[in-house]
Design a binder for these strands. Structure first.
Lengths: 273, 273
DNA sequence: GCGATCATTATCGTATTTTGACAATTCTGC
DNA sequence: GCAGAATTGTCAAAATACGATAATGATCGC
């Protein structure tokens, strides 16, 4: 662990449970002297990533983080493209349902926006930043199913146990099969995988180059009968298409080839599996 | 500029205007070799603060920032305490008004939450992270007026020109006078200082130790007649008191002394000016 | 107001670490 | 599978980060 890593590791110390740290507390955790810990903290404060609080030796996460998060919100093409459609969609579905916009980061899926049907009592947009498990829940699976083969192979080799446990197959071939089924459906449905008693529906979102960028999901409290599922699923798929179109328009896709292919199964554009 | 500073400076390169950087672009800006730049980027990616994008040499701000921002949202006592009252207040005021919650960070004022009266067309909570000028606008002045004398003295010595330009006095004595007036009013009103044609009303928020933590403001589109200003001002002051009470309850104030003083001018509890 | 106490910064010689050029490797698009 | 780019590994030189202590500065209580 190099010293730059230690410096950055400091930020990870701050959690909702322990949002305040003193330099004396942090130094032993980092295995550095008090002098060095002070130097690190000073650099982080100078960058705005930490903020001395109250005036008595305690530090909290700083304003730069909020600013950087704003930069992401302003520049993230998926978020910008999805917002209007999400507002439309949330009006179409019944109450007791939430919309989730998730984004793929390397090997992580993260919720980057949440929109509640009944926005009175619920806290709005409050679960932005929640990391989701890669192999559980419709939101993650919808993304997973459309990753390029190389990426999938790497993921499978890294986490075969987790994949088997999540019911995604006990072998590479089974894994491929399950994902192909999800792709064929154009929609992923899960029941109670993340929250007991909650039904999740999710569709993938694509870049102009047909790379999967994230997913749009509906979390519905309670079970869902078939007609409802069909109706809401159709709405969700339509919403996904619309967002894809907006993304293409925004990023100037120069749509290389596949203008002909039916967009019901966009995966085959990114290579056979 | 130490190497830790350079490492952290990389994050500042990413803006809404240029959200994507390659290592080759960044290296000359930092005055380091390509090898070192790659090492820095690797550390930042490992920490999740940057994210390789697309797959062709470009990097963007990473998921850790969104996660850290969530930590702040979950643990910031001002934000947690203010949310319910803001939801109540937004229902009391007419449309064409927005609520702003701002927080003091060292020498900066930053908007940490925004709530629109008409939350249909407006984008919700979208200006979180916007840094505000320290000496302009009601939200900043309301905070400024209640800073401890030492802090004020330091600020005045550092930015006398900005202060004069903002109409806050051409000398230290004038500066003190202006701020005392704001304190006496218990409320700061500004007209068109930040946005032309917008009236701002703002009250300060305090810690249990009566240190100023931030401010709660109403941004009202257009001019405001006297009766309206009085009515809304009273509501705002009441809201501020309520939030202060919640903060005291949350942080366990152990309210040291001043239980007797009228709370209309809380500043004298933190020292004379 | 003034002094005690804690948080923070400056000092400075030593040695650990980072640095940079280049080679090796991995990854991506075709 | 192959070309080309993106990224990582290697290694000697030396820059600079490190640690212990001393000095400063802020904050609290009296």
């Amino acid at each position: 662990m190099t010293s730059a890593d230690k410096l950055l590791f400091i930020l990870r110390l701050f959690s909702a449970e322990q949002p305040l740290w003193t330099v004396e507390q942090a130094a032993p955790v980092l295995n550095v002297s008090l002098s060095t810990a002070y130097r690190y903290f000073r650099s982080l404060v100078k960058a705005g990533l930490l903020d001395p609080v109250g005036g008595s030796g305690r530090y909290a996460l700083g304003p730069a983080i909020i600013e950087l998060d704003r930069n992401i919100r302003l520049s993230d093409p998926v978020l910008r493209a999805a917002l209007p459609t999400m507002q439309w969609l949330v009006a179409q579905i019944d109450r007791a349902g939430s919309l989730l916009l998730c984004r793929l980061y390397q090997d992580k899926v993260m919720c980057i926006h949440q929109q509640h049907a009944t926005d009175g009592p619920h806290r709005i947009s409050y679960e932005r930043g929640l990391p989701l498990p890669m192999f559980r829940g419709a939101a993650s699976k919808a993304i997973l199913a459309h990753l390029p083969p190389r990426h999938l192979r790497r993921l499978y080799d890294a986490h075969p146990a987790q994949i088997a446990e999540a019911g995604l197959g006990a072998s590479w071939d089974e894994f491929k099969d399950r994902l192909r089924t999800i792709r064929r459906n154009g929609l992923c449905i899960s029941r109670g995988e993340l929250t007991p008693g909650t039904t999740g529906l999710s569709v993938p979102l694509f870049s102009p180059q047909r790379q999967v960028l994230g997913s749009l999901s509906i979390a519905h409290r309670g079970a869902m009968d078939e007609p409802s599922a069909a109706r809401i699923g159709a709405l969700l798929i339509a919403a996904g298409r619309e967002i894809d179109a907006v993304i293409v328009a925004a990023l100037g896709g120069t749509a290389t080839s596949q203008g002909s292919a039916s967009s019901s199964d966009p995966a085959h554009a990114s290579g056979r599996i």
